[in-house]
Design a protein around this nucleic acid. Structure first.
Lengths: 236, 236
DNA sequence: CGGGGTGTTTGCGATAGCGCAAAACCAGCC
DNA sequence: GGCTGGTTTTGCGCTATCGCAAACACCCCG
């Protein structure tokens, strides 16, 4: 089994308050794996046999309806956990996880969780914290979808992505992984057509620069303004 | 301080795996209070000084935007906890809680949480479970808002309320607390007008019986059908 | 028993955003 | 260097849903 370097993960929120020895013990239960771009890490509905910690890359968690429509639940950034079905008492994954970039993850068997939590209660407390944060974000998203128009929602979504996974360039902030119009549509509850129109508009105003699965925010400040605009106060 | 009867709460998920003695100790830290109908239990943005367990009644948790629009985050049923800002590391309540019926709650000071969790790790595990479940429900809601039309969303919302807080009558299932069209609109991301139209329609088909802040599902089965209908397969 | 106030219904435009379809684009690959 | 397949753009008509406004219904209260 590959040895995992504790120093790489010790600072993560998940391990806050966990001693180096304990961390070592925890990591001994994990194995690591590499997923190439566009490969599935787990599928919605499958037995939740493992939970994951992303070390490198980016992962998209998406939920599919019986009729085939999808929404993006979130993008996982390095250092975050995902596939925590067991923590919430679910036997199956409620979403599908796809590596959107070549990614490296740590994998624990779900069966190890109860034991780990018993030995290291801080794990439960830390996980509670992150799950709670996600719950709040989720509520915020509901609020947005319910009260704002599409353009504002897209603005918010891109700003969040930029904050979470933005790479600073001299001419703006680039979102650091491949993302399509379709993906953005599924994050904001609209269609790829509408997203395309919006981005085209922004591009012609010099707010963004975008291409195939690639987006650069050129004028983050002015996009913030868009995001916070009330429904009517728009341009003439 | 009023003595709380442990037998009333011992079976709640929050206290799963907690011994009677421990439970007693936990309850000693709580006080109980009664909130009359329509009174606020806490306001969004206020210091999260307490967390709550609902014993009797019903509580609506709602989130308000800077511009004043509201959404209903959830309805709290007896036996459920709410106001858990501290568990997720928030210093302020992210939503407002209003008693929609005369309600009785147990109240713990937020400051007691760390100590309780340390002494009774099961509390953290149980809370993680419920927060996780709420997160999933929240994702499901996002999926619905993003992919279904209003009528289906309203159908789902009412069915959930009926399941959670329905009172069985011989002629149907009545939602057991006062709820307005406006409330339903805020649960489903639409307007009270649209909800009113939908309910009027249903009423004329004998699916529901409704009045001022009162809804009875007469034909739950047929409403389920509506809820699951795909966007186009509607009536001619 | 007569208000007053809140919640509900309904009509009637207005429109944001969808859905379809076609065309253009682009990146890699043989 | 020309194909091929996925992605993006854009035009156009359509409609579900909103928003406003006015009329109602009902409950509580005095």
């Amino acid at each position: 089994m590959a040895k995992v370097d504790t120093s790489l993960v010790a600072h993560l929120p998940l391990f806050a308050g966990v001693s180096p020895d304990a961390l070592d013990e925890i990591l001994r239960e994990a194995r690591s794996a590499r997923y190439p771009r566009n490969s599935a890490i787990f599928e919605q509905g499958a037995d939740a046999q493992s939970f994951f910690l992303l070390l490198h890359g980016h992962v998209r968690a998406a939920k599919t309806t019986p009729t085939g429509e999808q929404i993006v639940v979130r993008y996982v950034a390095p250092g975050e956990t995902f596939g925590l079905a067991m923590a919430i008492g679910a036997a199956r994954y409620p979403a599908t996880a796809i590596a959107v970039d070549d990614s490296v993850v740590l994998i624990w068997p779900t069966s190890a969780w109860p034991r780990l939590v018993e030995r290291f209660p801080a794990l439960a407390a830390n996980t509670l914290q992150t799950v709670g944060t996600r719950l709040q974000e989720s509520h915020t998203r509901i609020l947005e979808i319910s009260t704002q128009q599409v353009e504002q929602r897209v603005a918010h979504a891109l700003l969040r992505l930029a904050k979470q996974s933005g790479k600073k360039l001299d001419h703006g902030i680039e979102i650091d992984f491949p993302i399509s119009r379709q993906d953005i549509a599924q994050m904001t509850g609209t269609t790829l057509h509408t997203v395309s129109r919006i981005l085209s508009g922004w591009e012609s105003q010099g707010l963004v620069e975008s291409g195939r699965q690639r987006i650069i925010l050129r004028e983050p400040h002015r996009i913030v303004v868009l995001a916070e605009q009330s429904p009517d106060s728009g341009a003439a």
